[in-house]
Protein backbone atom coordinates (compact mmCIF):
# COMPACT_ATOMS: atom_id res chain seq x y z
CA UNK A 1 0.00 0.00 0.00
CA UNK A 2 1.28 3.45 -0.93
CA UNK A 3 0.81 5.97 1.89
CA UNK A 4 -0.99 9.22 1.20
CA UNK A 5 0.94 12.50 1.06
CA UNK A 6 0.44 13.61 4.66
CA UNK A 7 1.46 10.21 6.04
CA UNK A 8 4.43 10.13 3.69
CA UNK A 9 5.62 13.60 4.65
CA UNK A 10 5.49 12.98 8.39
CA UNK A 11 7.30 9.68 7.99
CA UNK A 12 9.80 11.15 5.53
CA UNK A 13 10.97 13.86 7.92
CA UNK A 14 11.82 11.22 10.52
CA UNK A 15 13.64 9.09 7.99
CA UNK A 16 15.38 11.89 6.10
CA UNK A 17 17.59 12.89 9.04
CA UNK A 18 18.94 9.32 9.07
CA UNK A 19 19.88 9.20 5.41
CA UNK A 20 23.38 10.62 5.85
CA UNK A 21 24.26 7.98 8.44
CA UNK A 22 22.47 5.36 6.35
CA UNK A 23 24.86 6.13 3.49
CA UNK A 24 27.82 5.85 5.88
CA UNK A 25 26.48 2.55 7.21
CA UNK A 26 26.70 3.82 10.79
CA UNK A 27 23.07 3.29 11.80
CA UNK A 28 21.99 0.55 14.15
CA UNK A 29 20.53 -2.55 12.50
CA UNK A 30 17.02 -1.52 13.59
CA UNK A 31 17.39 2.02 12.21
CA UNK A 32 18.85 0.74 8.93
CA UNK A 33 15.95 -1.69 8.61
CA UNK A 34 13.45 1.16 9.20
CA UNK A 35 15.14 3.28 6.52
CA UNK A 36 15.23 0.46 3.98
CA UNK A 37 11.60 -0.38 4.64
CA UNK A 38 10.67 3.26 4.06
CA UNK A 39 12.78 3.55 0.91
CA UNK A 40 10.94 0.67 -0.76
CA UNK A 41 7.72 2.71 -0.55
CA UNK A 42 8.97 6.28 -0.95
CA UNK A 43 10.23 7.49 -4.32
CA UNK A 44 11.19 10.94 -3.00
CA UNK A 45 13.45 9.60 -0.26
CA UNK A 46 14.93 6.99 -2.62
CA UNK A 47 15.83 9.78 -5.03
CA UNK A 48 17.33 11.77 -2.18
CA UNK A 49 19.49 8.83 -1.14
CA UNK A 50 20.74 8.32 -4.70
CA UNK A 51 21.61 12.00 -5.07
CA UNK A 52 23.25 12.19 -1.66
CA UNK A 53 25.34 9.10 -2.47
CA UNK A 54 26.41 10.72 -5.75
CA UNK A 55 27.32 13.91 -3.86
CA UNK A 56 29.41 11.97 -1.36
CA UNK A 57 31.08 10.07 -4.19
CA UNK A 58 31.88 13.37 -5.89
CA UNK A 59 33.45 14.73 -2.71
CA UNK A 60 35.50 11.58 -2.16
CA UNK A 61 36.80 11.56 -5.71
CA UNK A 62 37.59 15.29 -5.76
CA UNK A 63 41.14 16.03 -6.94
CA UNK A 64 43.64 16.56 -4.15
CA UNK A 65 45.91 19.57 -3.93
CA UNK A 66 49.53 19.49 -2.86
CA UNK A 67 51.99 22.12 -1.73
CA UNK A 68 54.33 23.85 -4.12
CA UNK A 69 57.94 22.75 -4.59
CA UNK A 70 59.19 25.65 -2.48
CA UNK A 71 56.99 24.86 0.50
CA UNK A 72 59.56 23.09 2.67
CA UNK A 73 62.31 25.65 2.03
CA UNK A 74 59.96 28.53 2.87
CA UNK A 75 58.72 26.76 6.01
CA UNK A 76 62.23 26.07 7.29
CA UNK A 77 63.17 29.68 6.64
CA UNK A 78 60.29 30.66 8.92
CA UNK A 79 61.18 28.03 11.52
CA UNK A 80 64.74 29.35 11.60
CA UNK A 81 63.38 32.59 13.03
CA UNK A 82 61.48 30.79 15.78
CA UNK A 83 62.92 29.41 18.99
CA UNK A 84 60.62 26.63 20.19
CA UNK A 85 62.08 26.74 23.70
CA UNK A 86 61.05 30.39 24.07
CA UNK A 87 57.90 30.36 22.01
CA UNK A 88 56.29 27.62 24.04
CA UNK A 89 55.98 30.06 26.98
CA UNK A 90 55.12 27.34 29.46
CA UNK A 91 55.13 28.40 33.11
CA UNK A 92 57.33 26.50 35.63
CA UNK A 93 54.24 25.04 37.34
CA UNK A 94 52.88 23.99 33.97
CA UNK A 95 56.22 22.34 33.11
CA UNK A 96 56.15 20.47 36.43
CA UNK A 97 52.61 19.33 35.73
CA UNK A 98 53.56 18.22 32.21
CA UNK A 99 56.59 16.36 33.54
CA UNK A 100 54.47 14.43 36.02
CA UNK A 101 51.77 13.93 33.42
CA UNK A 102 54.19 12.44 30.92
CA UNK A 103 55.80 10.25 33.57
CA UNK A 104 52.41 9.09 34.80
CA UNK A 105 51.14 8.47 31.28
CA UNK A 106 54.14 6.40 30.35
CA UNK A 107 53.81 4.27 33.49
CA UNK A 108 50.09 3.87 33.89
CA UNK A 109 48.31 5.23 30.82
CA UNK A 110 46.75 8.54 29.99
CA UNK A 111 44.11 8.73 32.75
CA UNK A 112 46.53 8.78 35.67
CA UNK A 113 48.69 11.89 35.22
CA UNK A 114 46.61 14.15 37.47
CA UNK A 115 46.57 11.51 40.19
CA UNK A 116 50.33 10.94 39.91
CA UNK A 117 50.86 14.68 40.21
CA UNK A 118 48.72 14.80 43.33
CA UNK A 119 50.41 11.77 44.90
CA UNK A 120 53.82 13.29 44.21
CA UNK A 121 52.68 16.45 45.98
CA UNK A 122 51.57 14.38 48.99
CA UNK A 123 54.91 12.58 49.06
CA UNK A 124 56.87 15.82 48.96
CA UNK A 125 54.71 17.32 51.71
CA UNK A 126 55.24 14.26 53.93
CA UNK A 127 59.00 14.25 53.36
CA UNK A 128 59.24 17.91 54.26
CA UNK A 129 57.12 17.39 57.38
CA UNK A 130 58.98 14.34 58.72
CA UNK A 131 62.50 15.55 57.91
CA UNK A 132 62.47 18.52 60.31
CA UNK A 133 65.08 17.72 63.00
CA UNK A 134 63.97 18.30 66.57
CA UNK A 135 60.37 19.04 65.64
CA UNK A 136 57.44 16.99 66.88
CA UNK A 137 55.79 14.99 64.16
CA UNK A 138 52.58 16.69 63.00
CA UNK A 139 50.92 15.06 60.05
CA UNK A 140 47.54 16.71 59.81
CA UNK A 141 48.03 20.01 57.89
CA UNK A 142 50.20 18.85 55.00
CA UNK A 143 48.13 15.82 53.91
CA UNK A 144 45.00 17.92 54.14
CA UNK A 145 46.42 20.45 51.69
CA UNK A 146 47.84 17.72 49.48
CA UNK A 147 44.57 15.86 49.58
CA UNK A 148 42.82 19.01 48.39
CA UNK A 149 45.27 19.27 45.53
CA UNK A 150 44.52 15.69 44.54
CA UNK A 151 40.81 16.44 44.54
CA UNK A 152 41.31 19.60 42.56
CA UNK A 153 43.49 17.80 40.02
CA UNK A 154 40.99 14.99 39.59
CA UNK A 155 38.08 17.41 39.42
CA UNK A 156 39.76 19.56 36.79
CA UNK A 157 40.58 16.47 34.75
CA UNK A 158 36.98 15.36 34.92
CA UNK A 159 35.77 18.77 33.84
CA UNK A 160 37.99 18.82 30.77
CA UNK A 161 38.94 15.25 29.92
CA UNK A 162 40.10 16.29 26.49
CA UNK A 163 41.85 19.49 27.36
CA UNK A 164 44.56 20.31 24.87
CA UNK A 165 47.08 22.59 26.51
CA UNK A 166 48.99 22.99 23.28
CA UNK A 167 45.95 24.22 21.45
CA UNK A 168 45.00 26.37 24.43
CA UNK A 169 48.37 28.04 24.24
CA UNK A 170 47.88 28.94 20.64
CA UNK A 171 45.45 31.76 21.32
CA UNK A 172 44.12 31.35 17.83
CA UNK A 173 40.80 32.91 18.55
CA UNK A 174 40.78 36.55 19.38
CA UNK A 175 38.39 37.37 22.16
CA UNK A 176 37.90 33.76 23.20
CA UNK A 177 38.03 34.54 26.89
CA UNK A 178 34.31 34.13 27.45
CA UNK A 179 34.22 30.46 26.53
CA UNK A 180 37.83 29.61 27.29
CA UNK A 181 37.99 27.44 24.19
CA UNK A 182 40.30 27.85 21.22
CA UNK A 183 37.75 26.31 18.93
CA UNK A 184 35.56 29.05 17.51
CA UNK A 185 32.39 27.00 17.20
Amino acid sequence: MIPNNSQENSHCSGIRILLSEYIDNTLSARQAWDVEKHLTNCGACSKEVREMKATVQLLRSAPRFDTSDGFMAALHARLDTVDPTLAAAVSPWRRLHLWFSNAGASLYGSRVPALSFGLAAVTIALVVTFNRPGQPVTVAPAPAIASDSVHISIASSANSPFSDPAADNLELRSGASSSGSTVPF
Binding site: A87, A88, S110, P165
Partner: peptide, 10 residues
Protein backbone atom coordinates in the same frame (compact mmCIF):
# COMPACT_ATOMS: atom_id res chain seq x y z
CA UNK B 1 56.56 23.77 16.12
CA UNK B 2 56.30 26.46 18.76
CA UNK B 3 53.76 24.49 20.81
CA UNK B 4 55.12 20.99 20.36
CA UNK B 5 56.51 20.89 23.91
CA UNK B 6 53.09 21.27 25.43
CA UNK B 7 51.48 18.71 23.13
CA UNK B 8 50.24 15.68 25.01
CA UNK B 9 49.38 12.46 23.32
CA UNK B 10 45.78 12.43 24.51
Amino acid sequence: YTSIRSFQSR
